[in-house]
Design a protein around this nucleic acid. Structure first.
Lengths: 167, 167
DNA sequence: GTCCCTGCAAATATTTTGCATTATC
DNA sequence: GATAATGCAAAATATTTGCAGGGAC
């Protein structure tokens, strides 16, 4: 069978701004409209389950797995199936309102699309801190150029123990 | 039930690509001795299959999956099972002669342990280039410190298209 | 001889898909 | 009313484990 699957590369390369690091992020407000327009353009439908999933997804500023999203959505609408959640989050990524993240715990997590940033994770308590650093971004570019690569995206994760977990 | 199980890698969401050989590097010579001493210390045994797998693993400077290692080992010793390869590579990691790498293609790859480095991958042909950059390492440290983290490890991967694949 | 190790098959975990049915446009 | 979307169950993929037999020390 082996149906064609999603394209390989992790997407994300997007215009980067020089902004102070560690700023709490603003809730992405345009996402609902972006999705609506995407659905219209592709002749797809705005369903009850998509509405519920979107709602929950935008509201929770966390990095959720499909399983987690499903568990929460089901509380509002018990009929929603897990497969639909998986399908819907892929749709969100396609529509560019969600970003897919795979850390080292073997599950795929999603977060609302926003300006580029990377992650630092506490290996003890699981806390996730977002960061961005223009110097690193520039160094990456220069490394890529040096090796003849045209950079499309990257993944940069720091693992350690946070202040509350360090002895 | 179910003993604490390491998270299975996320299923591959796309066709696997053959991965081109990594940049040539010096064969880590102490690894054989390191393993022997580890086995002795833990009262484990040096078996025929471990010997074969080690041989192949050290010889090939690539980032191989267990499946790939198994396919090659079987050519020399058809009786070796896939499960043994999985078990053996976890042993190698435990003994510190192998490093586990998970890129974005959903499979776990292994490479002989060596000095720290990061990876840049071509999303078209799968070529893997290794790099290291002290400035980035330093910047990482300072980010971690600024957020109160004690840094333990990191993961830094660049994705793009290499010179042979760029139009 | 004692344990460790192995192969095989079956079990797990995560994600995807086939299909009949339902909902949206 | 045409077609996309859903739910469920089954499939696909990657990896782990139980167990009986074989092998290393």
């Amino acid at each position: 069978m082996a149906a064609p699957r999603r394209p390989p590369a992790p997407r994300s390369a997007r215009p980067r701004r020089s902004v102070a690091p560690a700023a709490p992020r603003e809730a992405p407000e345009g996402h609902r409209a972006t999705l609506a327009s995407y659905l219209a353009r592709k002749s797809l439908k705005w369903t009850r389950q998509r509405e519920h999933i979107l709602d929950l997804f935008l509201r929770s500023g966390e990095h959720l797995t499909c399983e987690e999203i499903h568990a929460r959505v089901v509380r509002r609408d018990p009929s929603v199936g897990l497969a639909t959640v998986y399908r819907t989050l892929r749709l969100f990524v396609e529509a560019d309102i969600a970003a897919e993240r795979r850390f080292n715990d073997g599950v795929t997590r999603y977060e609302p699309a926003q300006a580029h940033h990377d992650h630092m994770l506490c290996v003890r308590c699981g806390r996730i801190v977002e960061f961005e650093n223009d110097d690193i971004e520039r160094l990456q570019e220069s490394i890529a150029t040096r090796h003849g690569f045209r950079l499309m995206s990257h993944r940069h994760e720091l693992y350690g123990s946070c202040s509350s977990c360090s002895t």
